[in-house]
Simulated assay, not measured.
Amino acid sequence: MATKQPIRVAVTGAAGNIGYAVLFRIASGEMLGPDQPVILQLLEIPAEGPQKALKGVGMELEDCAFPLLADMVLTDDPKIAFRDAAWCLLVGSKPRGPGMERADLLKDNGKIFVAQGQAIDEVAADNARIAVVGNPCNTNCMIAASQAKRLPKDRFTAMVRLDQNRGQALLARKARVPVEEVSELFIYGNHSPTMFADFTHARIGGKPAAEVIGDRAWLESEYLPTVGKRGAAVIEARGQSSAASAANALIDHVRDLATPGRLHAVAVNSHGRYGFAEGIWAGMPVRSTADGYEVVTSYQMDDFAKSKIKITNDELVSERDTVKEMLGAQ
């Protein structure tokens, strides 16, 4: 049997907590399959500490002797990291510091994603697909995509899969069923506390989730804010932001995008669907295809769902307005 050609996977922030949690799973075949060799192209900022840590991560990857890890590139140069990459996983971003305004965070990260978007468009593979994890991921993705002239903007996606996974797990726990019993739970809007985990179309064991749960008040007033604020709850409990669960969600995000027929939530170019403004990146249901994905537009929203989508849309529009001077030709 002919051996598959290795796929080049670029990962930014590769020595950070999420990067460290995801790289070994990519190299083991969990993301792209047990027979797909990969070349990891790992980017860290050009400072002594992160570059030293990246070297250590590379050593550990070597020490695992993964059969699928065909090669590695460790670099501080985006044009080297993204060259010929088929998947660009943008994990690294500037975290919000004490007393930092959200607008300042948006603008600081905007500069990073302008540069990365330009480098990806210049040197990545013609079939490159981009998954943005670094927060605020929806708007960072929009900024990176705005720099693309060669690559179609719909190749740029942002991750709301962690919210989907959190929402599924919470519904399963409430219903006392295995998590695989929960289906069609999609995240709409921003990866932030405003996002809408749409329980109105979710199903548990094939039945409407709201019918199985039997407590609409709990779904509206407890379930939604619990999912939306789960990241803050993890920080409060653990003292650090979600890392292993975010890495797991990234594996799910890419694996399902690479598997035709999968139905899942992804933040994509809205194109005005589901009441979102044009030109923002918003979570919504997609079905993966052989060469990308198609947005599923058949879900009809009730007034409650529409009100929740409006809130998260307004936040995304506000973020877009904050960084509008950074956006390339849309």
Score class of each variant (00 low, 15 high):
5 Q>N: 14
9 V>Y: 02
13 G>P: 04
19 G>Y: 04
20 Y>E: 10
22 V>A: 01
23 L>G: 06
28 S>N: 13
28 S>Y: 04
29 G>P: 00
30 E>T: 07
32 L>P: 02
35 D>F: 00
38 V>R: 00
39 I>W: 07
41 Q>F: 04
42 L>C: 08
45 I>E: 07
60 E>K: 09
62 E>C: 02
63 D>Q: 15
64 C>N: 11
69 L>P: 07
75 T>R: 06
76 D>Q: 09
76 D>C: 14
79 K>W: 10
88 C>S: 15
92 G>Y: 04
94 K>Q: 10
95 P>Q: 09
96 R>G: 12
106 L>P: 00
109 N>L: 06
110 G>D: 00
111 K>I: 04
115 A>G: 11
120 I>P: 09
125 A>M: 06
135 N>I: 11
135 N>M: 13
138 N>L: 06
141 C>H: 01
142 M>Q: 10
145 A>D: 09
145 A>S: 14
148 A>P: 10
150 R>L: 04
157 T>Y: 03
157 T>E: 00
158 A>S: 10
164 Q>H: 02
171 L>S: 12
172 A>C: 10
173 R>G: 09
175 A>P: 00
180 E>W: 12
180 E>T: 07
181 E>P: 05
184 E>V: 05
192 S>P: 05
201 H>P: 05
202 A>P: 08
203 R>K: 15
204 I>K: 12
207 K>D: 07
209 A>Q: 10
212 V>Y: 11
215 D>Q: 01
221 S>C: 07
221 S>H: 15
222 E>T: 13
228 G>M: 01
232 A>V: 02
235 I>P: 06
237 A>N: 08
241 S>T: 14
242 S>A: 13
250 L>Q: 02
251 I>G: 01
252 D>R: 02
252 D>N: 04
255 R>I: 04
256 D>Y: 10
256 D>G: 06
259 T>P: 02
260 P>M: 08
270 S>I: 06
277 A>S: 15
279 G>M: 07
291 D>E: 13
291 D>A: 15
296 V>F: 15
297 T>G: 04
306 K>V: 13
307 S>D: 09
322 T>G: 12
322 T>A: 15
324 K>I: 03
324 K>H: 11
325 E>N: 08
327 L>N: 01
327 L>A: 04
329 A>M: 10
